[in-house]
Design a protein around this nucleic acid. Structure first.
Lengths: 203, 203, 203, 203
DNA sequence: AATGAATGAGCCTTCATTCAT
DNA sequence: AATGAATGAAGGCTCATTCAT
């Protein structure tokens, strides 16, 4: 609450935001502390004053991105009341031109690449997925209760839906010229349908 | 037949192989030409004799990996005669302990991260996906012909299947502790089923 | 007045000075950024902080040397009022033990060698010669006016004097054991005399 | 006369010739053993078979160039019988389009730059100059004998002429656009005249 | 708080040289 | 004789990090 503490929060957000844009545009390994500083309108020293290392900044960026996406997903889900629309709402994240989301793809790839060799990143990824899956699971259970669905394994199904979502999103992002937005939505819908009624949920 | 040409082929393969293992284990940005050389049982100069830069090596590694995966997919598909099994055969690539395949995931992530900022990589990715999709498409058309399927848009469906496969594979790899192999297979089967019979293929 | 700007000027001068000594002593191609840094009492990184490449340093060194020699020539010329002495004053540059000047010969040779293949160096050389020639030309015109000389082509003559000076200086420097300073002065005087009264200036 | 010995002579000449062209075109420090080999139509190993190091090649190139220039000077001098023409014949070396000569300037600069830090090169330079001066000296003495000249110090005069020649030649080469060939010849003539009749030769 | 000067480790790349064939 | 594979030293450049101001 002291103006000092406020300033710190502000500055860190300013740096994380700049770093996010930098990583997204050039990749985690093609940026420098200096380029982050420049993007944030600070000097190199100004950046290191708030983050003790470049790795620290990157981790904060990834966390921040994951938080953002999770909040966005939660918000999207809450827009609907019927369970199926809740599940499909994930699809909105395909983004359709929302730069706040599409900016995140390169970040995510950098993160996944790093996660292969860094246990702490694996843990972050795991937690993020879990939170996400929980949202879907709740919607599924809700659907079970009101008779919309009849899923015997909501957890496995939720996991599968999120994984399918990821696969379609990646393809959409990396090969945009060949994959229309409509394709993405329809495919997601069809796949979800298959998962909800498939063998995963038979007994 | 010239032993020189043979040697060159051998050496390049030897280096690519070593680099693949290095990248997979540590990530493209955490290895050095020296570490590649050491892994290949050569000196730094020996490596530069065959590849003019580290980037060149990495590109060769990615190409090699993509070729391998494609060949493996093709081989798996050809093991089956009924169209549905052909589509499902992709799932075998989840690998179940085949290090030749699982080694590739970190590579793929590095590649995708790089592809966001490197047009040439985007092109490689695009071509690889295309080849892969073509295999699936052929199987779908075959299924249409023999009455197994009734898909009005084999191309879009093939794309979706490969994307879904990718999503499930990534999740399986990065969060192994929470996702059983069985989950992966069943999810894949269910999702494929949804795609083959869903709205993507209505009219 | 900002101490930062002052520091920058100081540091660059310090580095250029050290590099000049290094190049003179060992030759442009036998020194390293590290040896320059050491000679300047800095670390390698400290040097790169002020010059973005070794080439940049060398260019600054050459410029600095050319500026110095020009200023020295100008100063020497201004010491005299009669036109002939002005022309002869160039000869003082033979240096007679002034290390600031003799240090420059190896530099000059490196520069000329490089200039053969580097257009930008050719331009620098051209400009330097021009400035120098202008000084001599002014003295000749002055002599024409006061009746000392009777030169119909002051420009060509000034060029010739500077070229002759160069030739004698080079010989004096590279073959010191066989060429006395006295020889250099007398030869220069005689040659100038021949040029001032020769066919170059007969209509 | 053994074909082996003949081959060796041939090969060395072939390599020296190629290296000369390379050095002239790119500078001693911008060429590689490989580029020499390529220019000579040989492989790297073929070159090292005849010269044990790159330095060796360069030294042979310089020697070869100096020999060539000396022979050319000698030849030019012998074309004339009157002493003044003999002295002036040096001027032909300005070359006027003879690539065999103009090719040599960059070489000479590289050599001089190196000579500043390499005693052995200084010695080569010294010897070369001496031989050259001797030619001029002989012509002067001849002129003294037949009454054309009246030089009391033929040695110093010969040295000065060769130095003046060098100065004009360098200027002509490095700043061709501003210095006509005619300027070079006339200047040389005038300067020689001044030297032959100047104070160098009084008493 | 914020700057940017300075450090030095690390890495890619070049290339002279050696040597097996 | 000739090739070119292989080595490894050397050097330029980048950049994360530290620190004085």
């Amino acid at each position: 609450m002291s103006s000092n503490a406020q300033r710190e929060v502000l500055r860190r957000a300013q740096i994380v935001d700049a770093a996010l844009r930098e990583i997204s545009a050039k990749g985690m390994n093609n940026i420098t502390v200096e380029s982050i500083a420049k993007a944030a309108g600070l000097s190199k020293g100004g950046v290191t004053h708030y983050f003790k290392s470049k790795d620290d900044i990157c981790e904060a960026v990834f966390q921040s991105f994951f938080d953002f996406i999770f909040q966005r997903s939660k918000h999207n889900i809450d827009l609907y009341s019927d369970p199926l629309s809740k599940l499909l709402s994930f699809g909105w994240l395909y983004n359709w031109g929302d730069p706040d989301v599409s900016t995140g793809y390169p970040l995510l790839f950098d993160f996944m690449a790093e996660a292969c060799h860094k246990e702490s990143y694996r843990a972050i990824f795991h937690e993020w997925v879990n939170n996400w899956v929980a949202l879907l699971k709740d919607a599924i259970i809700e659907g079970n209760n009101d008779g919309t669905f009849n899923c015997s394994d909501p957890d496995a199904t939720a996991k599968a839906i999120s994984a399918v979502y990821h696969g379609l999103a990646v393809r959409w992002y990396l090969d945009r010229d060949s994959h229309s937005t409509q394709w993405t939505i329809t495919s997601f819908t069809d796949a979800i349908n298959g998962l909800l009624t498939g063998s995963l949920n038979k007994i």
